[in-house]
Write a protein that binds this DNA or RNA. Structure first.
Length: 279
DNA sequence: TCGAGTGTTATCCC
DNA sequence: GGGGATAACACTCG
């Protein structure tokens, strides 16, 4: 479920709650919680202090004071972090847990994941980025994001624009929901070929991507609970502000025509056939 | 009982 | 070999 805005909400929550805290003890409860690419077991970060929580696209990483090590996290479709009191019983979906120390107090940082597509991994930091995510492109909120370069890259894609938007090596952070939302805003049919779009159209799409994710992020920031950071539908997505995703057969808010759902690339795409003509 | 729905990646194919 | 397409991964809900 989580796309960039949800992951950023989680990052902000984590940053607030755990920056400066020390990991007393890391425990793994589920075999899939640790990515096979991890260079060490979770216990390798025992006694490390978390100096910051960073993000690129949908990937999060905790920077440790013990130099080049980082704990990388991907929420997959159902991952979430929670802050619990010491002694709190373990939730059925808790896949890993960190006993944390902040000043004189202690608390638990739990990683929950119902569907276990999310993972944690200990990784090496190279120039500030975990080695294993070097293939992930910058996201539109990165200060080094190069709009022009991304437009050029999209222009060179011999595939449908929606596929290209989901390609995390072109630009990261966009998932199925916000791809549909951005294309609706830009009035572009999801199956149009990227290489056939004009630079202006591609620029409009990029602007729409950023705007739609920005407003989702803004909404996400307001529904935060003090004690935990939730990325589930109930607090992560703002269904009221979604214009096309999950709104098959409802009226397009712009023109009143019915929103259509089509399947390609093994998932659903939602669009307005009137506002977003195929040609 | 079974399909839908989420993101990433291994692996196939051209 | 590069890039695009597809299926697999696990689980819950309707």
């Amino acid at each position: 479920m989580p796309e960039l805005p949800e992951v950023e909400s989680v990052r902000l929550g984590l940053q607030e709650h755990i920056r400066g805290a020390k990991i007393v003890r890391a425990l793994q409860f589920h075999p899939r919680a640790l990515s096979p690419e991890s260079i060490a077991p979770l216990a390798a970060i025992d006694d490390c202090k978390i100096t910051s929580v960073n993000r690129r696209g949908k990937f999060l990483w905790f920077v440790m004071d013990k130099k080049p090590l980082a704990l990388v996290a991907h929420l997959g479709m159902s991952g979430q972090f929670r802050i619990d009191d010491v002694g709190q019983s373990r939730h059925a979906h808790c896949r890993a847990r960190f006993r944390m120390k902040q000043g004189r107090g202690e608390f638990l940082l739990s990683f929950h994941d119902q569907r276990t597509f999310g993972w944690l991994r200990v990784d090496e930091l190279i120039k500030g980025t975990p080695a294993s995510i070097s293939h992930i492109a910058l996201d539109p909120f990165d200060e080094k994001f190069d709009r022009k370069a991304v437009i050029t890259k999209l222009k060179g894609k011999r595939t449908e624009i929606k596929r290209a938007l989901l390609d995390q090596s072109v630009m990261s952070g966009v998932g199925n929901i916000y791809a549909d939302e951005a294309l609706w805003r830009a009035r572009i049919h999801p199956r149009k070929l990227a290489e056939k779009l004009s630079e202006k159209e591609l620029a409009t799409i990029l602007t729409s991507v950023k705007r739609v994710m920005k407003s989702a992020l803004k909404a996400g920031g307001t529904s935060f609970d003090d004690l935990y950071t939730n990325v589930n539908g109930e607090s992560g997505y703002f269904e009221n502000s979604l214009e096309v995703y999950g709104r098959e057969d409802e009226d397009c808010s712009r023109c009143g025509h019915l929103i259509k759902r089509i399947k390609f690339t093994n998932r659903s795409s939602h669009f307005c056939p009137h506002c977003q003509p195929r040609r």
